[in-house]
Every structure is written in C-alpha cells, then in structure tokens.
Amino acid sequence: MLRNTRVMNRFDLTRRLVAKLKDEAVVGGIGFSNFDLWASSAGRAENFYMLGSMGLAVPIALGVAIAQPRRKVFALEGDGSLLMQLGCLATVAARAPRNLAIVVWDNGVYAITGGQATPAAQAGTDIVAVARGAGIAQSAWASDEAEFEALAEQALAGDGPWLIAARIDAERPAKQTPRDPVLHRQRFMQGMGVREG
C-alpha cells in the first residue's frame, strides 16, 4: 500500500483540503504542518496553530470534537509528531468520535530539524496499518491527489473517526506561522463561537 502511493506536496494538499471547508475546525500540528495551514488559510478563525506540545494535534482535536460534537474537526499531524503519541490512536478508537478526521503528512523525516530520518522510516512502519491495528477502521493511504480529495470529501460527509495518510515531499513550507500563541488561541475560540470577536 505504502509503496504504491505517490509522493505529494503538503502545501498543495492543505490547500485542497481547506478549499472544501466551511465551519470545520482544523488543528495544525507543530512545525511545517501548521506553517502550511497558515500559508493556505491565515485568516480562517477555525484554525488552531500549535507552536509547541509536539504530538498533541490529535488529542487537542479530540478535545474540540468532544466539546462540539456537531462540528467536524480535522487534525493535521506530521508522522514524526504522531510517533511521539501513538497511544492517542487507541484513545480515539475507544471514544470513536464521529466528527474527527486525522490527516497524517508522512515524509519519514523530522523536516524542521534538518531532515533526519524517523525510526519509522528506517523500519518501514506503515502508519495506516498502525491506525487500523489501534482500532480506527476507516484509515487509508491517499494514493494521489484525487484520492486525497475523495477521502477528505468522505470524511466531511460521513461518520468518523477517519485517518487519511499522505506521503509528502521534503519541500519547505510556503510561509511561517507568527509566533503568538495567545493570538492563535483567542482567534480559534472566536472561530469556535465561545468568544466574541
């Protein structure tokens, strides 16, 4: 499965996903995952940008999904970050939130620190197989851009939890997120309708 997937570009796929969104929440994981989310949709109040707490995109998104069960929530997480908190996949499977979708950008490296290989890249670990094994049955590799879009549509329309994994290249992000955690938290709370603008 893994070796038949095309190597895509994170910024391009992020833009394709964001283009389909209305009021869905998106949690951008630490590093290039949230940088490209910022680059694709900086003005979107429903985006949360993680400037630390590596590995917590999925737990933060799960918390949002529990608090607002009628809003769809996407977590955009890198493979290295997810490896740090693999146990969260079992927690997601146990809670089975219908409104949660996890997107994993898999380039096999810690890109922001200089492109060092992850242990999973060396071992050939298959993130989708790990997610299925953890109990998230609706987990799939996107083999190309068209399939990524189709899987995103499926996640938007149907009950989750979902996990969509995409192999991506080593390209740098299009922009950098401003380092202002309070601003991001405040905007996101406005986007979630719990704070006035």
């Binding site: 949690v27 917590l56 908190q85 927690t91 709370m189």
Partner: peptide, 26 residues
C-alpha cells in the same frame, strides 16, 4: 461527566486544552 482514560498524561492534557478552547471545561 464525560470520563475516560488516556494512554499518557500529555494526551489527557491536550484533550482538556482542546475542549476548553471549544467551550467545555475539564
């Protein structure tokens, strides 16, 4: 209450932070 275990304390903290930003205390 919505009560459940997590695999690690970091995860539990991330969930509560996410929930608070979306209007639920934990």
């Amino acid at each position: 209450f919505t009560a459940f275990p997590t695999a690690r304390e970091e995860e539990a903290a991330g969930i509560v932070c996410g929930a608070w930003m979306a209007g639920m205390r934990g």
